[in-house]
Every structure is written in structure tokens, then in C-alpha cells.
Simulated scan of single mutants.
Amino acid sequence: MSDLQPAIVLVRPQMGENIGAAARAMLNFGLSHMRLVDPRDGWPNPRAVAMASGAAGRVLDHAGVFPTLPEAIVDCAYVFATTARARDLTKPVMTPERAMEHARALSASGQKVAVLFGPERAGLENDDVSRANAIISVPVNPDFASLNLAQAVLLCAYEWRRQGDTTPAEVLELAGTELATAIEIGKLGDHYEERLEEAGYFFPATREESMKLSLRNLWSRMPLTRADVQTLHGVLRQILRKRDG
């Protein structure tokens, strides 16, 4: 993985399970650079390994452990601190989306970026936040603003991944078929129009053209597959067969 991805820095994490869950969240979105500052229960931590569950264990295997925050971020040109409160400090406050957009731009220019996450019970202290260049604040429900450690890591990791991802916002999954061509849909429309005309559907005559236009518009709006077209032809033939039989 790229050396230019941000370092995820867990400051004084308390529970091994939360460290492991954070590692899983990181790897879900392609991040592998974890740093730990003075973990409460020491390191390595078997509970973290158990929670990381498999592949994410490699994030823990390469995690850096530091006694203090300044040592953990000494090589970083830009530091984000995740906190729900500005702490009366004059700093830019960004959403995760904006922060990771900025982080990608910094990384692309060769600058090392770190994102700080505080201990589970109370979050980052003022001294921790004062060492950051900007604050990340998640726009959560103000009546219940608490996020657990892994959730906070996941939100930032997701935004980092999304900023560089080219996955289309929507795709149509075609199960063993293809979209019908304009000619195939046109013939389907002709089939229905002919049979409806025989049945006297287009009445009164003054509305015939507008009714046919509406039907043509209906067919063109539908994302029909070739299988759909064949089914609709078959449905109409069977109805007529029953009627005429």
C-alpha cells in the first residue's frame, strides 16, 4: 500500500477490542498505517488480534507504538484531530469528506498526513488537539453525538477511499441477458399497438394519436432487457390465444 496514505493515530486507546476493530475498519478501505500512542493495556494485545480477525491482523503487525503523541507525529506535515468539540481553539473545522479531500491533495504532493483519534472514554485532550492543524467533526445527531473509536476511524477511512474511488454511483446488474435495443423495443410497441387497435382501445378517435404517443413514451422509459421483451411478447400472445381459442 502507498506510503502516502494517512497514518491513523490512536491516542491512548483503552481496549484491545477497539484497536482491533479500528484495524478492520482501516483495511476495509485500504489503509494500513496505524500508530498507537501509549495504549493502556500495553502492546501487543491479544484482544486486539482476536477482534482484527484475519487479514486485518497485518495492520496490527506493522503498527508503530510510541510513548507520546509528539513522537508519533514527528514526521507528519499536516495533522487532523477528530473531536466533537472545538475546545476554544482557533482551527479549521472540516467534515470527514472535506478533510480527506484535503488529505489526498497533501499526500499527492508528498506530504505525510496523520489523523488523531482519542481514547474511548473522553476523546482527545486539549493538548492533543492543540498539536493538530485542523479538526475533523462528524455531522452527527447533536442529541447523541458519541461515536465509538472504530466508527470514527471507519468514517474517515471511507471518505479517504471514496475520494479516490471510481466506482459508479449506480449500475444495472444484468442477470444473463442484455438490454434490449431500440429496434426490439420499437417492435414490442408495434405489437401491442396493433393488438390494442384491434381491441378498440384507442377511443375516441380524437385521442388516438395522444394515446399512442403515451404508450411509446412508456416503452422508451423502461430499462427493458431482451428477456423482458420476449416475456412481454409472450404474455400478449397468450392472452390473445386464450381469447381466440
Rank of each mutant, 00 (worst) to 15 (best):
M1P: 13
D3Q: 14
D3M: 13
L4Y: 15
Q5H: 13
A7C: 15
I8L: 14
P13V: 15
M15F: 15
G16L: 03
E17I: 15
A21G: 06
R24N: 06
M26E: 11
M26N: 02
L27R: 00
G30A: 09
L31V: 05
M34G: 09
D38G: 01
D38H: 09
P44R: 01
P46M: 08
A52F: 07
S53P: 00
A55Y: 04
G57N: 09
L60A: 07
L60Q: 01
H62N: 15
G64A: 04
P67W: 04
P67I: 12
A72N: 01
V74W: 04
C76H: 14
Y78Q: 05
V79F: 03
F80L: 12
F80P: 06
T83L: 04
R87M: 14
E97L: 12
E101L: 15
H102G: 11
A103N: 11
A103W: 02
R104M: 09
S107V: 05
A114M: 12
F117A: 13
P119D: 10
G123Y: 11
L124E: 03
E125F: 08
E125H: 08
D128L: 14
N133M: 08
I135H: 00
I135N: 03
P139M: 12
P142C: 10
P142R: 01
A145Q: 11
L149S: 06
L155K: 01
W160S: 12
R161D: 09
R161M: 13
T166N: 08
T166F: 06
A169H: 09
A169F: 11
E178N: 03
I183Q: 09
E184P: 01
I185Y: 00
D190R: 07
H191K: 01
E193K: 05
E193Y: 07
E193C: 13
A199C: 11
A199F: 11
Y201L: 11
A205R: 04
S210N: 06
M211C: 03
M211W: 07
K212F: 14
L213R: 08
S214L: 14
L218A: 08
R221H: 09
P223F: 07
P223E: 06
T225P: 05
R226Q: 12
L232D: 01
L232C: 00
L236W: 05
Q238H: 10
R241P: 02
R241N: 09
R243A: 15
R243P: 04
G245L: 13
